[in-house]
Structure formats: structure tokens, C-alpha cells
Design a protein around this nucleic acid. Structure first.
Lengths: 224, 224
DNA sequence: TGTGTCGTCCCCCCAAGGGGGGACATTTCG
DNA sequence: CGAAATGTCCCCCCTTGGGGGGACGACACA
């Protein structure tokens, strides 16, 4: 049995969703919310397998609610449901931790399948959304992944930290200053990073960091 | 009627695919290829709506074949079909211009639906693949729109070219070799790039390139 | 208690990169 | 036509970065 929570500010839409979902023997709607806050609160109490989340809602929109949910209870799997194919929604939602993104014009059977898919831990997007995501990826994702995500775990926490700063564009001296250690120590860390990841120089390390989604949390990484 | 071309080096697999696809009244298999080159050649002649492309093939793999196809005839829509969920395959394939990515363990009905979806101009990914794509996006889709795309246009075409290679991890010497010019010239270009973009060193240039979605088209950018 | 990992720091050396110029041929364009 | 932009190449000089070591204290784990 898959439990679902519905979050949508439109009564009719909620009724429709309930009707569709309950038509499937293996789905049970365990709660309904009309605002983002309600959705967050109810999810915490009911612990549904899947949250069907509308984007436009008063008080806290679906994206923000998703962010809260996935931050608080990572087990929650959110399927965002919306009328519009807005890029902001799509990328915002996915970055907020949503597992899927469906347009409301999706047919009932699709929706049911989607819920099961999400509940199973997989992800899914509407076809037209997929197109956009792929385009975006192709745009600024590098060529093939360096293939060895393995090596990243060889790095010690400190080394990872240095790698992130390095990927933020900082020089060895700047990293040293920021971490309050000697530059020679930074050089040692960099040396080991390059060795472990089998990279030639810091430039390739930056690329590696980007390709693997590592990113500096910088507010620095400034122009000169 | 949707026309499909099948590219797979495995006879049995081809037979299976044909059987499945032809079970649908609206799909017609108009060609079969056992190698990447064959796939490219046949696609050019038969002009199928959709190309079902295996990744592992002798002579020219599915990714490379897809790249050629989409480069030459942008109308071709490629659905990559593979047994493995390798990141290299997935991202390589999508960047090569594929419209979708399915695992071979997909059920027959799914495959048929997928072909129709692709033929309709939409895109689609296997659920587990979708997961990876989303993760990747979330990981390094930056704080959208870097806001200052301005300076990029100050670069001359040549400078842009050098910047891309630089962002591919190449050293000045390697860039010189690739462009068949002197290293001193490359240094001049790099110098001007840094000046125009107000960056300190090549590391920051790499970051700039990534943040602005510029990427090298290389096949090199190798480890040491 | 020893062995290992981690983080810190040091040395020397040399290659690579970047800053400051200048020069010259082609092409573009007003 | 003359000026500006572009791409090519050169010089000198100095800073940065990377490679090869070695060392030592803190802590964990067996």
C-alpha cells in the first residue's frame, strides 16, 4: 500500500486527484493540504510515502515547501504537479529535492503510474520537462563524467575542503589565509588531492569538482 | 505511422526489438544495423523517425554514432538503449544529442510508448536514469543565470576558442599544439582573456566558463 | 602498545603561468 | 584610403604552482 498526501489550494483539483488515486487499490490518500505550511505539517504527522505538491499555493509555495520537507525528512518523496512548464518551477523544484515533476494535463493512468514509480524510489519527469532538463544539462554539463566518482571518497575531509576552495578560484595563499594554516600545508593538501584523483594540476581539479557537483560555498571566488 | 531503425550488434536483441515494435500497428521497422557506422549510413538513407541505438557496438559506439547522426541530420531522434546505467553512457549520450535513454530491462509496452513519445518530439528517460540526471543537475546547476554574460561577448572568436580549451583542462602548450600555433601566441590569447574578463588566472577562467555554460568540445583534456 | 591515518610544516628545484611591453601582416569597415 | 580589430609572434622578468622527498604530534583502533 502506498500512502499519498495531496497539497493543492484548489478544492476541485484535490477532489479530482483523490478520485483518480483512490481508483487504484494500492494507493491511499492519507491527507490533504491547501497551503504549503499545511503540507509540511501534515507530512510530518502522516509520514506519507509520496507527497503530491502543487506549485502555486498561498502562504508557502510548493517549491519552498518541498525544500523544507526534504530538508527535514529526507524520506519524503515529493512529486511536483503543476500547470505550467516554467523553468523556474522545474529547476527550482528539482533543486529543492523533488523526485519528479508532472504537468497537470497528465492522464490519470500516468499519474497513478507516476506515484508508484516515485514510491519505489525512482524519479520521473513529464516528457516535455525531460526535454528541458536534458537541454540544460547538455548546455553546461561537461562531457562524459570522468568515470571515477570512486576516487572522491579517497579524499580526507580536509582535502575535500581544500578542493572546494580551490574550485572556488582561490590561490594556495588565499586558502591558507582562510583556513589559518601555512601555505606549505595547503600545498601538501593540493599535492595529495592531485595524486589521489590522478589529475595534473589545479585547473583539472576545478574541472573535476564541477563535473562531480562539488562546489565551493563561496561568497568569495572573486574577480581580482 | 512511425518508422524506426534499430542499431544493435546482437542478433537476438534485434530480433526481439523487431518483434516487440512490430506488434504495434503504428510502428514500422525500416532498417537494422549491427555497427555504429551502419547505423549512421542507414539512417541517412532511410530517414527513420526514431533510431533505437545500442551503446556497445563495434566500429563506432552508440554515443559516437548518435553524435554523428544528430550533427548531420538534426531531424533524427535517437533513443539510446542499453543494459548498463553507466554515467558515462547517460551523460555522454544525452550530450551527443539523444532524445532519450532507456534500459533494456524496460518492459515491451514501455518501449512502444517510448518510441511514440520520442517520435512526437518529446524526450524520455528511464526512471532510474532520471534520478541521476536530476541529482547531477541539482548538484551543479549553479545559482541560475550568472547574471553577467556581458563580458563574454568582448572575446574574439579565437579567444573564445582558447577559453574553451583552457576550460577543458589543457595547458598552454597543449592548446598551442591543438591549434597549431606557438605557445607564445596562446599566452597572448590567455592574457587578453584574463584581462577582458577581469580574472586573475586560468583557474578563475575555468570557473567562469563553467558558470556561463561554456564548455570544451574536446575528446582530450586528459589526466596526466 | 604498536600501526595507521590525518593534519601540520619544512626543504629544494624547476616548469608553468602571468604581466609588461613591442611588432607586423590581414582583414574589416567607415 | 586610413584606422581599427584580429591573430600571430617575440622579449624579459618574476610569481605561482607542482614533484620529490622528510618530519612530527594527535588520535583511533586493534
Amino acid at each position: 500500500m502506498t500512502t499519498v498526501l495531496i497539497a493543492d489550494d484548489d478544492h476541485l483539483m484535490r477532489a479530482g486527484l483523490v478520485a483518480v488515486l483512490e481508483s487504484d487499490q494500492e494507493i491511499e490518500v492519507v491527507g490533504q493540504a491547501a497551503t504549503g505550511r499545511e503540507a509540511v505539517a501534515l507530512t510530518r504527522r502522516r509520514q506519507p510515502d509520496v507527497v503530491l505538491m502543487d506549485v502555486q499555493m498561498p502562504d508557502l509555495d510548493g517549491i519552498a515547501a518541498t525544500r523544507e520537507l526534504t530538508g527535514a525528512s529526507p524520506a519524503a518523496r515529493v512529486l511536483i504537479l503543476t500547470t505550467f512548464e516554467e523553468d523556474d518551477y522545474i529547476f527550482g523544484g528539482l533543486r529543492a529535492g523533488a523526485s519528479g515533476f508532472l504537468l497537470k494535463r497528465t492522464r490519470p493512468e500516468e499519474l497513478i503510474r507516476a506515484v508508484h514509480t516515485i514510491a519505489a524510489g525512482e524519479s520521473l519527469l513529464s516528457p516535455s520537462v525531460t526535454r528541458r532538463v536534458i537541454d540544460r544539462m547538455a548546455g553546461h554539463a561537461g562531457p562524459q563524467i570522468p568515470a571515477d566518482q570512486s576516487a572522491i571518497e579517497d579524499l580526507t575531509p580536509r582535502e575535500r575542503e581544500v578542493l572546494e576552495m580551490l574550485a572556488g578560484g582561490l590561490s594556495n595563499a588565499e586558502i591558507a589565509a582562510a583556513l589559518v594554516i601555512e601555505e606549505s600545508t595547503v600545498k601538501t593538501h593540493v599535492k595529495r588531492i592531485l595524486m589521489k584523483l590522478e589529475l595534473r594540476d589545479r585547473v583539472q581539479a576545478v574541472i573535476f569538482a564541477y563535473e562531480h557537483g562539488l562546489r565551493a560555498r563561496r561568497q568569495d571566488a572573486e574577480r581580482r
